[in-house]
Design a binder for these strands. Sequence first.
DNA 1: CTGTGTGCAAACTCTTTGCATAAGT
DNA 2: ACTTATGCAAAGAGTTTGCACACAG
Lengths: 139, 139
Amino acid sequence: MHALTDMDMEERLRRSGLRPTRQRIALAELIFAKGDRHLTVEELHEEAVTAGVPVSLATVYNTLHQFTDAGMIRVLAVESNRTYFDTNTSDHHHFFVEGSNEVLDLPHGDLTIANLPTPPEGMEIAHVDVIVRLRRKAH
Amino acid sequence: MHALTDMDMEERLRRSGLRPTRQRIALAELIFAKGDRHLTVEELHEEAVTAGVPVSLATVYNTLHQFTDAGMIRVLAVESNRTYFDTNTSDHHHFFVEGSNEVLDLPHGDLTIANLPTPPEGMEIAHVDVIVRLRRKAH
DNA sequence: CTGTGTGCAAACTCTTTGCATAAGT
DNA sequence: ACTTATGCAAAGAGTTTGCACACAG
């Protein structure tokens, strides 16, 4: 079963134009194993090390950027000073929990945006990000 | 006229619970002089120095955070790795121009969000940020 | 074999902090 | 005078880069 997953991941990486190296395969499996995820470089690095894949922090950075360039994941700008990567590249939006700095997918379908302004001349909309910032309710 | 502006700014700072020091007055005037602005610490520092107010970078950081805590300005999370401050604290949204890293106010009133999801138990919505990312149109 | 990827450590950028000096009240 | 702010320089986080070694094709 593990071999099969590796093969799938190899294929996926290859289709994205990336050589399926040990580290890339391992990171991709960690990233895509559990559905949509929002993670920081630090988190993924720790996961990898814990999972027995002693990849370096620099490689995690490089790999995540390569995945991003390949369109496999997306960068989330929810907070200055910390880069979050989103394993779901489709159109959806996010909750951001202040304090715990958690990112959650918004239940999709619910939210709709009406009357998006026309972009300035010569510009087009690349993406619309909606971030719903949450705080713990005063009891 | 300049003296008057200074007085106004002093009053405003005082009402926000901040001592109206030379630097704070000067920075506040730069910030609020031209209506809504979106600026980085680096930009404001440069403006201040150019305007003959030799304030230190650390003080610009401190001051902007104090203004933020006082509710005079807001932090914008449009891009990881660079903090933008918004001099308009009212409810409005933004264009972000990829490449030039410019932030523009969305013409307001146009955009409406429908069916905001209910926050998870014990949470409430602090703020909703919409960022419309623009790219230069292929000609 | 040849070229690309990886690891390490050093460099870099943005931001925060500690402490002595200066300014505000 | 007493208290708070500022400036500087140093430290800190997160991220990127250069180069020797390792691995994939």
